[in-house]
């Protein structure tokens, strides 16, 4: 039998990975079988990320999967970003289940373009105003970052945003949102945004 679902553990907790080519019924069947076989393995209340794995399914199917997981004491984490699974018109969304942890975007993202990735994202180019980057991990922009960036979109508060020129309209990290000052100066050094004491702070990068 083909493995339709896989549980992956990483520093953010458990992540559900679903083979896109398998039908919903088969996914549900295998999910139940796996959970039954390893019922004791999961700690009660442990968070599990089911997005974006289940984005291909309908709303009722998604809640059915969530229901099954919750029967075994797992807590499904809601996606922090709306529309987190759809790749941008720019493309660049890689399939889940691959070992790739960072997506390299080798061009400038222009207004209206959006990149969403479950791992970290590295942009070699600018992120222009009205462009959006959503990453499960860190975001690194080797260029000017003027758009909206969301690092740790699935709730990772240790995620960071780094840019050669960090001038983002909005920086979101996990559940926090910081907007740019109304009168911003051009930064003259590489800066990193991270969460400290429950606020987003920007400081000079030293690493």
């Amino acid at each position: 039998m083909r493995e339709a679902i896989v549980f992956k553990g990483d520093r953010d907790g458990l992540q559900l990975v679903v083979d896109e080519n398998v039908s919903f019924d088969e996914v549900l069947k295998q999910l139940k079988a796996k959970l039954a076989a390893a019922a004791d393995f999961f700690a009660a209340g442990a968070p599990i990320h089911i997005y974006p794995a289940v984005n291909g399914f309908s709303h009722s199917q998604q809640s059915e999967i969530a229901g099954v997981l919750e029967e075994y004491g797992l807590r499904c984490v809601k996606p922090a970003a709306e529309d987190a699974a759809t790749a941008s018109e720019a493309g660049g969304h890689e399939g889940l289940g691959q070992e790739t942890r960072a997506l390299i975007v080798n061009r400038t993202l222009r207004g209206g373009q959006k990149v969403v990735y479950h791992g970290s994202v590295v942009v070699i180019g600018d992120v222009n105003p009205n462009a959006t980057v959503v990453a499960g991990g860190d975001i690194i922009v080797l260029g000017a970052c003027r758009g909206t960036v969301h690092a740790g979109a699935y709730g990772d508060e240790r995620a960071t945003v780094t840019a050669t020129k960090l001038m983002a309209a909005q920086i979101r990290i996990a559940g926090l949102i910081a907007r740019s000052p109304d009168q911003a100066d051009k930064p003259d050094m590489i800066e990193t945004a991270r969460i400290k004491n429950n606020t987003v702070v920007i400081e000079q990068s030293r690493r």
Binding site: A90, R110, G111, G112, P129, N130
Partner: peptide, 8 residues
């Protein structure tokens, strides 16, 4: 802004 979108 619009020009940027168009270029994309």
């Amino acid at each position: 802004r619009d020009a940027d979108r168009i270029i994309g």
